[in-house]
Design a binder for these strands. Structure first.
Length: 675
DNA sequence: ATCCCTCGAGTTCA
DNA sequence: CTCGAGGGAT
């Protein structure tokens, strides 16, 4: 360094040009080669000198000067720009078997040839496309929908690892793709600042990066130090590159940083070894990865494989099972259920977890909430129970903002302001106001649902209006609605109103069991409704049944009997049922007649799991029942058959453990169809 | 009294 | 899907 100073040109413009060259060179040594020659203070000194020089001689400023990373004025908004070559997404695999299946597809597609693969870390950041014209960065765009994204050039320029001009023998026009991301250390630094300022914590680097790219003021974006790696050139079929491996080398020659962790593998076994190695090692990285990307190396092979409209056939992502994710708890809201239960719900910054984007999760009840002690503003860890339902595990004490206060248990119903009361035995808080609009809506939703009265078109939007306007207070009111009242609802055309009216009318024919289920009597669901309806056959006899008589029925005990008895003793409920009768509801059970055919499944218990081709869950349950079988919801030793469709989960495993007969859909049809 | 099987209730997301 | 708890068998 010192030696070069001797022939530093003295003229300001030459000095400025030299400084720019040096700064670019050191940037490159730092970010691309990872072999810095000078330390940070020395680098900053060069930058400072250039800044003051440019301040004295503003005419010396060039658009690609390293001092111009933070552009001038904040933007009014982001322009949408089209990608010349679409940014395809990559298919995911989640286990070695799926990856081997990919390998087999590839080799079949190559007529048996064995391709080389390149593995790359799949950094959890934001995909980006950068365009260089004559070596100058002219545009940076997010992936968006793959066809068009947002122009984030001003913010991308603040990423120090992004060269503003290319080096080497670059083509006149070049579009490159990479991933912008944030290191864990940087996130920790930002959070320390935010904590001191009493601002909400940033939960994860990915969201923070995405947020930073969308900041309208590049000066603020510059304060969030982001990083980038490049992994591809956007090119068409006739590209000049021989292999992916060489493309990566070329990117480095242009001064574009690439990952040092990419590897070339001779077959899928070698790839799986790399995956296994990183499974343990990934925690030691200073940034987050959610898996690896595996790409066929040779360009000739890629061309033979081609792409579907969504993704290339020559690349696949391998994702590590992301069991837990971190996000920020933005708010705790309180929901009112159909029985008046107040349930606290965690509203979170959306975060990807095990294949979906999670933003809400139940906190069950206020005792549970107090036990977990999560507070608004906390960073929380969430996981998915059985790959489906998100749960809040815990908060991260180090990331708790200073002012976070424990959630206050509501003393009034948040929906109607009514009195709340703690369930004597249970842990639940309940709104006691039976005409609380939230409860009314929930009860009506249940009444109209598929497993009850099955009124098509009676969705939440319609019910909201009907209840808010006071037209409907209970199930009986639905049958008094006029056609013009329906038509006057928002977003309701004449045709939709007619359909809805017809659906309401049709629901009058539902058998007693469905009506009972719809009434929402405590402890009485679909199954118990069936039992009661088939025992009594009509509403009248059931209503007058004494408690002792009810308990004599198989599967009805003290608790259920008392609940049913109480329900029919209550004046309001009797009045409602009288009104339903006036409106002409059937209110009788349709007993199985011998004309229904043979009861092939008599005494047999079935459980259904997974997605079926020709049945909905309800329709197969109906079919089982008409044939005299029992459709149950959980597998046990008492289960005779499990019908397993696509994506069967834990039930299938349990059935195998217990030695329960497992049927495919076709096998089930064969059994049922021979009727 | 205790176990096991089910049901009901509350739950999320595409 | 999971939890808690009702119902019945032991």
């Amino acid at each position: 360094m010192g030696g070069k100073r001797a022939h530093v040109p003295s003229k300001a413009s030459e000095r400025a040009a030299w400084l720019r060259g040096e700064i670019d060179r050191h940037n490159r040594l730092y970010y691309v080669e990872a072999e810095p020659e000078i330390d940070d203070p020395a680098f900053d000194a060069l930058l400072k000198e250039l800044e003051s020089l440019e301040a004295e001689h503003p005419d010396l400023i060039t658009p690609d000067s390293p001092t111009q990373r933070v552009g001038g004025e904040p933007l009014a908004g982001f322009q949408t720009v089209a990608h010349d070559i679409p940014m395809l997404s990559i298919d995911n695999t989640y286990n070695p078997q799926e990856l081997r299946a990919f390998d087999e597809r590839v080799r079949r597609g190559l007529g048996g040839d064995q391709p080389n693969y390149v593995t790359e870390l799949k950094i959890d950041g934001v995909a980006i496309s950068l365009r260089y014209e004559n070596g100058r960065l002219v545009r940076a765009a997010t992936r968006g929908d793959g066809e068009r994204g947002d122009d984030v050039t001003a913010n991308i320029k603040t990423v120090r690892a992004v060269p503003l001009r290319l080096e080497g023998n670059f083509p006149e026009s070049l579009e490159v793709r990479g991933e912008v991301y944030m290191r864990r250390k940087e996130l920790a630094r930002l959070n320390a600042l935010r904590e001191a300022a009493g601002e909400p914590m940033l939960a994860n680097p990915r969201n923070t990066t995405a947020g930073a790219l969308k900041l309208l003021d590049p000066k603020i974006a510059a304060q969030r130090k982001m990083d980038i790696v490049f992994y591809d050139v956007a090119a068409r079929e006739n590209d000049v590159f021989v292999s992916h491996w060489e493309t990566l080398a070329l990117l480095r020659m242009f001064g574009l940083p690439t990952s040092k962790e990419s590897k070339r593998c001779k077959d899928i076994d070698a790839v799986l070894q790399v995956i296994e190695d990183w499974d343990k090692k990934r925690e030691t990285l200073d940034f987050e990865i959610d898996g690896l990307v595996i790409k066929v190396d040779a360009a000739t092979h890629r061309r033979r494989l081609g792409a579907t409209s969504k993704s290339p056939r020559w690349a696949i992502a391998y994702k590590y099972p992301a069991q837990v994710a971190r996000t920020v708890l933005k708010n705790i809201s309180v929901q009112v259920g159909k029985t008046g239960t107040l349930t606290p719900v965690a509203e979170m910054e959306p975060v990807p977890l095990a294949g979906t984007v999670v933003k809400r999760s139940t906190l069950h009840n206020f005792e549970e909430l107090a036990r977990k002690d999560v507070r608004v503003g906390d960073t929380v860890e969430i996981q998915k129970a059985g790959e489906i339902i998100p749960q809040v595990l815990r908060f991260i004490p180090e990331l708790r903002p200073a002012g976070a206060r424990p959630f206050k248990i509501p003393s009034k119903c948040p929906e109607c302001g009514g009195e709340v009361h703690k369930d004597p035995e249970g842990v639940y808080l309940r709104c006691l106001n039976l005409s609380c609009p939230a409860q009314v809506k929930e009860r009506l939703r249940h009444f109209a649902s598929r497993s009850a009265m099955d009124i098509e078109g009676m969705g939440p939007a319609v019910l909201d209006q009907l209840v808010e306007t006071g037209l409907v207070r209970g199930p009986a009111d639905l049958y008094g609605l006029t056609q013009s009242q329906l038509e006057n609802l928002e977003r309701m055309g004449k045709k939709s109103a007619q359909n809805l009216g017809a659906a309401i009318e049709a629901s009058k024919e539902r058998p007693l069991s469905r009506l009972l289920n719809g009434l929402g009597i405590r402890h009485v669901g679909g199954h118990t409704s069936d039992v009661l309806a088939s025992h009594y056959g009509s509403m009248e006899t059931l209503m007058e049944a004494p408690s002792g008589e009810l308990t004599a029925i198989h599967e009805i005990g003290d608790v259920v009997a008392a609940s049913v008895h109480d329900f029919f003793e209550t004046h309001e409920n009797r009045a409602m049922i009288a009104r339903l009768r006036e409106h002409g509801l059937t209110m009788v059970d349709t007993p199985p007649s011998s004309a229904d055919g043979p009861r092939l499944f008599e005494g047999k218990s079935f459980v259904v799991t997974g997605t079926l081709q020709h049945y909905s869950r309800d329709s197969i349950h109906d079919r089982i029942k008409t044939l005299g079988g029992r459709a149950s919801s959980s597998v046990s030793a008492a289960t005779d058959y499990l019908v397993a469709g696509e994506k069967a989960g834990t039930k299938l495993n349990k059935a195998r453990e217990l030695g329960v007969n497992v049927l495919t859909e076709d096998e089930f049809d064969a059994m049922a169809g021979s009727a």
